[in-house]
Design a binder for these strands. Structure first.
Lengths: 340, 340
DNA sequence: GAGTGTACTACAATCGATTGCAGTCGCTGG
DNA sequence: CCAGCGACTGCAATCGATTGTAGTACACTC
């Protein structure tokens, strides 16, 4: 194919004007064109292998059929499934996905969003929200639909697809309680992120509700979702509270940090001290012992975010509700009956 | 901002014609415009917050400033860093990244590429090549630059950025040989993928070169890069060849499958039988024992692929060389001195 | 047979930028 | 005093589609 076939070629081939060809090719307007003509145009288009030029169409209709997505950290295996879900759901409606990454210490995270907007994406999916996020406010005034995914914010009211952290932590705490644990600690994630904050609050609520011993001394905040901070926090926690028999970590990596801390102190994970994680990331089932953890349906989360976005894009009265997907508990060797 | 500012607005504001404004705004043509006029236009553009409309520009210049990338499996943590590298390198030149996923059993994988081409991406990065890939041939005739990443093909000659599997397997074999291992087995990946084939060939070459015992009975092919196939293959291998003291796996997941098989047979990983992996994916360092594995610079790989693509896009005589990035060995507890 | 629908189809403007070509203006040299 | 040149700047076409409006042809009514 030397030269791309345009609408004009199709029209000439079918012996009609381009406008007629356009209408024949378009689902919405097909009905105004004579059936025989439609057939002729369709046949010609098919024979020439015509595909509309997205830029020309977009320029006229003011739509790019493209959605932008901002990821805080592509190296984190968490986001693969989310992106996969988004991409899949968008594809079903003919939309494509533009990916942008705000690395851990990006000099100007907002510029990433601006770039996407300058590209005239039809909608935005943000996985980067912080609880106190200033960009989001300025984005509200823009006329571009937004959906948050995985993390939400408190600054503004935006549609968000999240994991149900309250339920998830509940699964972990109930599981531990059923095993006889009474003194349970929490290695929290960064409280500046909604996930960190929510899981912390859920932990306090559930332990309280179940009549377990828990005050602020049961909790230690890690400053980042990584193994090392988890190690440091778990160590501090266990030193302060030697009576703890179980730890609920806000994240799998933190839980694995806790593994290390527990071993450092000469104890065995699962037997002496039980540990639960959160996310069920790849390979944690193969740890020694396998990590009991809360599984969040990340792919569904992405798909749901995409569907909500598409919905809000086509509607003049967007839904701004938060959806919380129900997690499951994957029970493995890292939790066991309380040592007597 | 109710209405977007266009070039016309800037031109009116600066008191010039749109064509002059366009030239003043464009690096290439700025020199033909009077310096004072340029300043006036620039100032106006800045004041109005002008950003060119990418569709209008693209329609005229026939460029979308967009690159498409096809991933075989977004759930695989391997691809995060590659995508990150690509996105980063593209961003430096003002290009954006359109992501498409061909899931494991996608009904029509080629349609994904076609969609990207219909979107008029300026270039393509494919992480999906199989050794015997028919689509690639048809793509060659198209006029769109392509770069392969991670996997290559034998069907056609295309630029590719790969890991140096020969060197990587060499690192593993040499390491084992230095520990005294003589009878080494190989759990190969799918030989239909270039990585599977190349690592297999490299294994044979290195063991031969070093005078180690190795024929086809030392090798067992797994039919997919996953833990379970690794388990099955390792088990068969060890049953057939009880004399083996070490296993070189073509991939970390296969290696973890081998862990299981070894334990099933009542032996200890590292002490009785050494195991090496490939990729150094997240968390394998935290396994028990930590997996000795070949670390491939995936982020660099992505960045390099993007750079090569941009280069080939701007040049009329594209480079079609294959680049192989040098891997490193991460030594951990899964390899040890041969048992005597 | 004039008038009025009906059912299509063609014309032409438009989206917002880029770019070849054609001025315009001032100044210099013959 | 005018041709001619240089340095800008403006005009208008163009990229490929969509869409409001106008026009044509035909049938049907009275």
């Amino acid at each position: 194919m030397g030269q791309r076939t345009t609408l004009k070629d199709v029209a000439r081939e079918a012996g009609v004007h381009t406008s007629t060809a356009s209408r024949a090719l378009n689902d919405m307007t097909r009905s105004v064109v004579n059936a025989a003509t439609v057939a002729r145009v369709l046949e010609a288009a098919d024979r020439l292998g015509y595909a509309p030029h997205p830029l020309a169409r977009g320029l006229r209709t003011n739509q790019t059929m493209t959605v932008g997505m901002v990821i805080p950290d592509l190296e984190n295996p968490l986001f693969g499934p989310i992106i996969g879900g988004v991409e899949h759901a968008l594809g079903e409606d003919g939309y494509s996905l533009l990916i942008a990454n705000t690395e851990r210490d990006h000099p100007d995270p907002d510029s990433v969003i601006r770039t996407l907007i300058e590209r005239r994406v039809d909608g935005l999916i943000l996985a980067t929200a912080t609880r106190d996020d200033a960009v989001l406010e300025s984005l509200m005034s823009g006329d571009i639909p937004i959906v948050l995914v995985n993390r939400s914010t408190e600054r503004v009211h935006l549609p968000a697809i999240l994991g149900d952290d309250y339920a998830g932590i509940g699964l972990a705490v109930e599981h531990l309680e059923a095993l006889g644990h009474v003194a349970i600690g929490h290695v929290a994630g960064p409280l500046s992120l909604s996930t960190g904050r929510n899981r912390h609050d859920a932990f306090m609520a559930w332990t309280g509700k179940m009549g377990l011993v828990a005050d602020s001394s049961n909790v230690e905040e890690a400053d980042w979702y990584q193994v090392d901070p988890g190690y440091v926090s778990a160590r501090q926690l266990l030193q302060r509270r030697p009576d703890l028999t179980a730890i609920v970590a806000a994240n799998d990596l933190l839980a694995l940090g806790a593994y290390k801390a527990i071993r450092d102190m000469g104890q065995r994970v699962g037997d002496d001290i039980s540990v639960t994680g959160y996310n069920d990331m790849p390979l944690v089932d193969l740890m020694e012992p396998g990590l009991t953890t809360v599984r969040v349906p990340y792919r569904e989360m992405g798909a749901e975010a995409a569907r909500r976005l598409l919905l809000n894009m086509s509607s003049s009265s967007p839904e701004v509700t938060e959806v919380r997907l129900t997690p499951k508990l994957a029970v493995r060797g890292s939790t066991g009956l309380v040592a007597t």
